[in-house]
Nucleic acid binder design. Structure first.
Lengths: 202, 202, 202, 202
DNA sequence: GTGTAAGCGAGACGGTACGTCAAGTCTTTAG
DNA sequence: CTAAAGACTTGACGTACCGTCTCGCTTACAC
């Protein structure tokens, strides 16, 4: 007797994983080669050897495709380290992030292109925040909460503000200065500043 | 003998100021009414009662039009106040900036749209930085330099970093959270944080 | 030894008569409701609650479906009457034909649509002639041959030409004047003309 | 003082005659080479070296393009001769028509394709009748009226019916038998039949 | 009775063409 | 030389059907 709570597979052809992969790869590659502006549904379809219909069947816009591709490819090495040294952890994570954006220009171009598209596509904006940002921001907040509980930050420190102070300048450069991102030294100075402003009273 | 410093009128029809104004107004109005995405050269031309050729004759792209329009309309009340109270001055200027962006949604939409376009138009990026940002950043740096010289900031404070700490979070919200900008309270907290991190050693 | 002329039933599920009927009905109904142009394999499948595959399994094109549907539905009352009065028989048959085409607009639309499709589908053209026309033309020729043998037409009358003279004008109107078909009076005049031209010399 | 009833030329770029010619030629050539089914707006545009927009600017559908092309190219030698011999004139004109359709297969294919399209495009149907048929039918009726007035046809002959008797069979063959048109001998027999049926009583 | 091969619904897939839109260039006439 | 009007090429958009294909279920015969 079948368990009704486990619905049997619908009796039709399942989605092609091969097409999905080809589409995501093609979209990121186009980003890297000719910039986000060259990413069009037609170009993705042509390069992936796929029909436009297949793209529109599964994604509402080219932005959604790039978003999924970027999320898939996101460098897990940029995840937060958890040592005893808060400053080192912060610098380490941010450095990993920047290195990811610089090492493979597909990623940097994809990210700023997505943010740009976001300005006239609310649905994409939601997706970007929900799928890409929120999980990573949560991680950061978690690490900072640990530090606060350990007395390394003031008990009343506003963790969200701290996060904005840390990442705000990074996005500021990324978007307004065409990817002239911070150096590691600058990152250290940035983290020092922010930690000093949130340090517990002596 | 003609005075060479007063160029004689060229023997041809001069640029029409009326058209220029109509074009700039139309571009901003379209921003406000249907968003930056609805700003197209065709739409501007139609609304301004002007031919597309005239637009292309004087501006290289629609972004350049919007940039000039925004620069023209920039709220001079957001200029930096110069009282003795650094904190009040900073909060005041930033509040003026945010109020300008919120009061007339044409401005907010125009700005984020421009930043978005910037990602695939280096010429526009240069224009945005040179015409819109730099003058205002200079002003901010000047005000901070005065404060530093007056001993209100550490002598070795990195003024550019301070600026990025102040404005980074603002742009972070503007671009990544669709204009859910800071409240005045949040601005105060932000300025306090940054000033604390740059305060002179006790 | 099995009789090869009576193929044994294949050891598998037989064709579904229910699907066949649903498909034919759906195709004619679509003709009637939105015109032949709205008859697409997808629409037939959707309306008949059938998969496209099932249609393509049994028919080579949508035209073939409509042809079979039309043939199935063909009004047998349009068959040739055989009284002594040739003129009355001809008028009667043609009137029955026209009435069929006018009474149910599914039929008229299906027929002209088929003829149209015929122009780029030779296989359908063959099917239309073989299945729909030829049997009816044979009947007409048979009736005329009887009349000729009875001395009601000239002995050397070209029966095929007579048929073309009778039905040519009908199709002419059907195709070139969007179904403004002849009235009964006009039919009578037409038949009179043709009979006069084929009458035996006095 | 300008005469307001003679509007001065509007101050804008006039329609390009070169594009128009290229489009019409391309559409007919495509008919001839791969059949009316291969005539698509995209194909016309590609072959004519013209953008789709230009086609859609001036014609509502591909059918309208082919119609205009066919009208432009219509063989004026198929115009009605006006000798004393009615039978010869009729045979001559119809022969010219058939020769035109057979000599250049672009024409035959274009015509049947148009008639087919007509079945789901009422606007095209109107155009076909108004632009292509009516002028030629009028000519035929005029010639027949002259004959009737000269006593060569019965005084009460229905000229429109005569025309349908003459041309109905031609279209019947053209559409239902894939262009197996009448031979000259058959044309003669056809004309004889029709004239006999309309001849004045002896 | 049961195994199995075809029928069947559903619908994903690679394509082609559709008709629309904006970009940016060019041509004409008027001032 | 400027400007309005708007025709032009280009190229992407998102949609509709085409005809083919895979999937998992069902069903009637053949053993």
């Amino acid at each position: 007797m079948p368990d009704p709570s486990v619905p049997v597979a619908a009796p039709h052809r399942p989605r092609s994983e091969a097409s999905r992969r080809a589409i995501l790869d093609a979209s990121l590659d186009l980003c890297g080669e000719h910039g986000y502006g060259a990413v069009t549904v037609e170009a993705i379809a042509a390069r992936a050897g796929v029909s436009k219909k297949t793209i529109y069947r599964w994604w509402p816009s080219k932005g959604a495709v790039v978003l999924e591709a970027l999320d898939d490819a996101a460098n897990p090495s940029a995840d937060f380290p958890h040592t005893d040294d808060l400053r080192a952890d912060l610098v380490g994570q941010m450095e990993g992030l920047l290195r990811g954006l610089l090492a493979d220009r597909r990623f940097g171009r994809a990210l700023v292109g997505l943010i740009a598209d976001t300005q006239h596509d609310p649905q994409l904006a939601r997706g970007l925040v929900d799928d890409l940002y929120r999980p990573r921001v949560e991680e950061a907040r978690h690490r900072l909460a640990l530090a606060r509980d350990a007395g390394q930050l003031r008990a009343d420190a506003d963790l969200d503000l701290v996060i904005e102070l840390l990442y705000g300048p990074v996005y500021y450069r990324l978007l307004l200065h065409q990817g002239e991102l911070q150096t590691v030294d600058e990152l250290r100075t940035l983290v020092d500043h922010v930690l000093r402003s949130a340090a517990p009273a002596p």
